[in-house]
Design a protein around this nucleic acid. Sequence first.
DNA 1: TAGAATCCGGAGTGGGGCTCCGTATAATAC
DNA 2: GTATTATACGGAGCCCCACTCCGGATTCTA
Lengths: 187, 187
Amino acid sequence: MTGHPGRSDARRNRARLIEAATALFDEVGVDTAAMNDIARRAGVGPGTLWRHFPDKEALTAEIVGQSLDGLAALAIELLDEPKSRDILREWVSALVRHITRYRGIATSYARATRTGDSPLGVRCLAVEQAATELVRHAQARGQARTDLTGSELIELATAVAWVNETTAPPDTAERLLDLVFEGLRPR
Amino acid sequence: MTGHPGRSDARRNRARLIEAATALFDEVGVDTAAMNDIARRAGVGPGTLWRHFPDKEALTAEIVGQSLDGLAALAIELLDEPKSRDILREWVSALVRHITRYRGIATSYARATRTGDSPLGVRCLAVEQAATELVRHAQARGQARTDLTGSELIELATAVAWVNETTAPPDTAERLLDLVFEGLRPR
DNA sequence: TAGAATCCGGAGTGGGGCTCCGTATAATAC
DNA sequence: GTATTATACGGAGCCCCACTCCGGATTCTA
């Protein structure tokens, strides 16, 4: 029940690395966090870090992965919710919150989506499929325009998350999402 | 009429640097273009490059600057156009085209907007003022919801430009802009 | 407890942004 | 045309970072 078999110190170091990376990502953001610092913080040599994770993206995927899977699961749950709930809006809010959880993830996420063979890319594909399903249901409920696709929804959510962590004053995400959902035109 | 007074070789080198940078930005994008490569391409030592432009952002500002000023000017022109024209949509399209002109500019633009004292930041402020004016006119024409601000418009445009050059398949910008303007809801 | 498989540590590499200073060159004065 | 001075140039070099390599240590197995 320890995941990989391998040696005991290897498992321990892997856990320490993930812990250290999570902490550093939380403090300074994914793009600013230096790999050497993560290794030092974990009490481990740089070589050990690079053996456990072939590149920085693999480490990012490991940390961001679970909550990404959670998003796919959340989408499936929402499918059965009563028609009164605005499932699409709720899910996109969760998606944006997830992407803005650590600063700099939006870029990694975007790159991973384009080249879907990486460990993070596979997860992104799952999320996109969940989005497609969710959009279909929302359309049937009359809560989304009929020509909207799951990819477009994710692209817009990622865009809002990125601008929220880059340009905009903090916590503008919800306001921007409102604008995107209702449109810039008068209703 | 040579701009800076200074020495003749200095003016010549400055011109060569801008030319080389423009070419490299066009080929590989702003973020990928290495300063040393720009200097070599201009037939100039690295030191010369750094004396003319204190950091990479200054060089970027020099190249992106003119068309940014053009955007502010375009906004003023559009104010006098007949009511049949969709001035807000046209201007935002131009803004997005400008940001996607060189790959990687969206990030520089976003950073510059937040810290408005840089050479690029000043230009961004001008664009933002133009946007505010334009939004006001569009609202008077009934072409924009009344609670929309110029900053929000720019944030969304920047977001779309970024996702268009990062995640999305090429030339999705117009489609995404349509979605943002009309909203994800059914009309 | 010895041998083998596995893993660790950290010095090292290459690239990129950026700096410093001895030297060359353009402008000016004579 | 020459000397002087201010200005600009060139490129070696610094620091930081992602990433690699291998001799040596540690864990597992028989």
